[in-house]
Amino acid sequence: MSTALLQKNTVRLSLVLLVIVGAVAVFAPWLGLPDPEEVNLAEKLAPSGPGHLLGTDHLGRDVLARLVFGARTSIGSVFAILLLIALFSTLAGSVAGFVGGAVDSVIMRICDIFLTFPTLILAMFFVGILGTGLTNVILAIFLTHWAWYARIVRGIALSLKSREYILAAKVAGTRGFSLVARHILPAMAPQVLVLATLDIGHMMLHVAGLSFLGLGVQPPMPEWGVMIGDARQFIWTEPQLMLYPGLAIFIVVMAFNLLGDGLRDALDRSGMLEERVR
């Protein structure tokens, strides 16, 4: 599987990009960059130069430092969302699929309610209720996305339930937690992983979009959507302030999507995830 995955040039490229971005984000505090939140009005809107490689923004903050620390916020929040979804949706979907009957119907109808609304509108609604801020954005995006995963996991659970090797394992005396750990989770994990990777880019755009609208991450915390929002008023005079975070979002989202496509081709032989329409 891993060899098939690495044969694609797009996958290799995206992996290289993501490893670089990931390393930079993780080691950001040790890279010797200026404080991303330090305001210095004397140096505001400075061009690129030796002190500030990518110049400064309207408050004199170093753009490169804000980009690098912004990567931590963006990528970190997406992984937090995915972790929440992976835990909750796998549980909800498995219970629906394996227990079946009325429990299944109730969980699936709740999913239907969540799936009825466009995700961005629903996310804005939740942020409206919960208030702005990074934690609430994470919660809002989790709330708007868990139902997709729960449905997929339920589908996998249904197909696993009647699988003969699950029955054979039961006859062989495997029960409860061992059955889940040995047979059920290993069968679910690849498909959930593919789905999650395909969705990372999408969620990143959500976080950035909500932050751009002023609903998400609050200034002065560095985040790519916030940076674009801040740069809006200088679009004609200092277009690069918008270009840098825009490029950063573009590259990372693209890399995650390419990786997701590659993973899907390598892991999802059933084509089950192929048909998903957002």
Partner: peptide, 12 residues
């Protein structure tokens, strides 16, 4: 104990 029909399907 049991042996099933679907050979490929009955092993993990």
């Amino acid at each position: 104990q049991v042996v099933f029909q679907n050979v490929q399907g009955s092993v993990n």
